[in-house]
Amino acid sequence: MIYFNSFIFAGFVCAIAQFILSKTKLTPGHITAIFVCIGAFLDVFNIYDKIILWAGGGALVPITSFGHMLTHGAIQGYQTEGFMGLLGGTFDLTSAGITTAIVVSFFLALIFKPKD
């Protein structure tokens, strides 16, 4: 059942994004930025945590989960260490993804030549 839920949720998010992309003149960069902001907003009152419980991996793979993790880390940091924890905890959960993306693409760019 959780596979079905994750299919529905991830597909729904992508379809909304595609609809915005087709109907307006926004670029994919705008749309990913908007969706990150939506994800960050949904975490303020722990709505996104419930969605993750419901949809599992389907809620973790869209870019909205990136915003969710940023806010989640910041709030977690604030609850343990106060205001400085809010600043220090922002990247707690997302750093693995960002580090992997940067390191892997750096080394692969050294090896591969661009295709035209």
Binding site: Y3, S6, A10, G11, C14, A15, G57, G58, A59, V61
Partner: peptide, 18 residues
């Protein structure tokens, strides 16, 4: 376009769950 985005996005979610 929306249908294709729905199906491929959903498949990405299923792959993530797997």
């Amino acid at each position: 376009d929306c249908l294709i985005a729905f199906i491929t996005g959903g498949l990405m979610g299923v792959i993530a769950e797997i």
